[in-house]
Amino acid sequence: MARFVVVLPLVPLAAGDEFTVAQWPLHVTLVEPFPTSLDAVEVAAVLGDVDGIGREARAIHAAAGEDAMFGRRRDVPVTLVEDGGELAALRTRTLAALRHAGVDVQPRRDFRPHVTRKQHGRVRQGDRVQLATVALIDMRPPQGGHHRRVVAAWALGA
């Protein structure tokens, strides 16, 4: 079974880009990792039809908010992202499209947009954040479990 995640990277990503888990580009997760029997092409087709991704797409302008700690043990440092509601609306439409396609998505009910702080970068409170790409990421690419591969990407506001 395939496993994907949908993210809004802070830097442009394109189909075919690859990176290791340690080098994940800074991003806001739009839809948490989900398993599916659909292949990458089918999931990309579903996402490409979502209003705000494939049609009439506009970049989302946001700001970095407060720092917080996430994870079961509250040991994952993040910076919350604040916007005018566009992230929640895009998330709702994306989840609905995936469910309509038969994907059993189990989203967090306490979703709070954020950017995880990494050794190679972070955002700081007050930073302006432009989310101008939606990317579908393969969590189980042929390269193995420590790699990720961009299956498809859509420019927002192009």
Rank of each mutant, 00 (worst) to 15 (best):
I137H: 12
V5A: 10
R93K: 13
R149K: 15
A64R: 08
A57V: 13
P113M: 03
R91I: 14
V50C: 11
D51L: 03
F19V: 04
V150D: 09
H120M: 06
F111Y: 15
V129D: 07
L98Y: 08
M69Y: 04
Q119K: 12
L38I: 08
G126A: 14
R3K: 05
A2P: 08
G71W: 11
A63M: 01
A2D: 02
I60N: 05
V7D: 07
G145F: 03
R55S: 13
H114F: 01
A158M: 02
V115R: 06
A59V: 04
F70K: 14
V46Y: 01
F19C: 04
G84S: 01
Q23S: 10
Q106E: 00
Q143D: 00
A63K: 11
T79W: 08
D138Y: 03
D49W: 01
Q130R: 13
G52L: 11
Q23A: 07
A89M: 15
G121E: 03
T94S: 09
G16E: 01
D127R: 12
Q119N: 06
R72V: 13
G52F: 14
V21Q: 14
R128V: 12
A152H: 05
A63L: 07
H146A: 07
E82M: 05
V151P: 08
R72E: 07
Q125E: 15
A15I: 02
Q143M: 05
E18G: 07
V43Q: 03
R3S: 10
G16I: 00
L156W: 02
T79D: 09
Q130V: 12
Q130G: 14
V150W: 10
V50S: 10
P9K: 09
V105C: 09
G144M: 02
T133A: 14
V43D: 05
P35Y: 02
G126E: 08
A101S: 11
Q130I: 09
P107W: 00
M1T: 11
A96K: 01
D17K: 02
R73C: 10
H27P: 08
L87C: 10
T79I: 12
V28E: 11
T36K: 10
A89C: 14
L13N: 01
V115C: 04
T92L: 09
T92I: 02
V11R: 12
A44D: 01
T29R: 06
Q119L: 00
T36A: 02
L47K: 06
E82F: 01
T133K: 13
H120I: 10
L47A: 09
R55L: 06
E82R: 07
A64C: 10
G145S: 12
